[in-house]
Design a protein around this nucleic acid. Sequence first.
DNA 1: TCATTTTACTTGCAAAATGCAAGTTAAAAA
DNA 2: TTTTTAACTTGCATTTTGCAAGTAAAATGA
Lengths: 168, 168
Amino acid sequence: MAKKKPSTKWRSGCPLNASVEILGDRWSLLIIRDMVLRGFRSYKEFLESYEGIATNILADRLQKLMAHGIISSQPDPLDGRKLIYSLTAKGIDLAPVLTEMVLWAAAHEETENPGLVRQIKMDKKQFLAAARRRWTESVRNDRRMLEVTKEDERVSRENRAGDIKSLV
Amino acid sequence: MAKKKPSTKWRSGCPLNASVEILGDRWSLLIIRDMVLRGFRSYKEFLESYEGIATNILADRLQKLMAHGIISSQPDPLDGRKLIYSLTAKGIDLAPVLTEMVLWAAAHEETENPGLVRQIKMDKKQFLAAARRRWTESVRNDRRMLEVTKEDERVSRENRAGDIKSLV
DNA sequence: TCATTTTACTTGCAAAATGCAAGTTAAAAA
DNA sequence: TTTTTAACTTGCATTTTGCAAGTAAAATGA
């Protein structure tokens, strides 16, 4: 499932340190946020998000998140130029980290999006359950789409075979 | 209470972005961890922690954490070379962020300190309550120590005054 | 009391990460 | 079949990080 294990050689064995080494930069968690909370799935969407990430940094972060097994990618069957990025189970498990960081900043800094904050405060568990449900749905949906695509390919292969036969 | 407001000019108003701009580096949260979980309070202790932070980076991070009102510092009344760093309320409020990051890494990476992880998993609320209790205690204790020191100074001032009088 | 040690830094410099602008390539749309 | 679009890559300047070596003030030891 995971793409590749990064050379698990942490500065220390402390679990917090592992988190910080993987996620401790100014962009990774924002990409995760866009996926968990806003359902973003493509390079273009991430690029056009609020904070304005640079193209090379985005490409680098997507690669690293994949290397850490937090996201995965597949070609879009409907548009060959696109890659569809998905959260893995490891990725959606970051939702509680996100929500706590949102609550902390909302409590101590001047921030926007009071609707989001209110929702989390009102019922954190339900908020997380909803996020996970959306994720489960999208995984199911991707699988379905993949099957349809495979079927399409099978049919088109048969058609080509038919064409060739008709040429003989 | 807070030292100074940093020029609140975020890349975006999203609360998660604020958190990431303040805490999104490879060291800040480790310093907070050392304070919340291990009770560290001096430059030297932070310096000797597991991950081996460089002296200049540590000085820089301590300054930034102070500028953000996450920690504060006071001279050690028992040793004039030392500064005692303390978590502010804003600082101790980061405990839930820490615990979620610990749980995430423990679930998905090879890490050590299973005792800590077991404790958090067993009863997260109680774990956080204990961390906060330790913090409240240390705040109370600091205040007490400060008063004792002030009394000492008053006495020593009187003694000096007495000495001067005795010289006249 | 006077040299030594300790604490909390600073400074200088090399290496790595970040950010911006300008390509590039393959696929889709007009 | 020309033009757009999506997802990058490249080059280069700026910033951040990390290491090693100071420094100043206070405490400690002889």
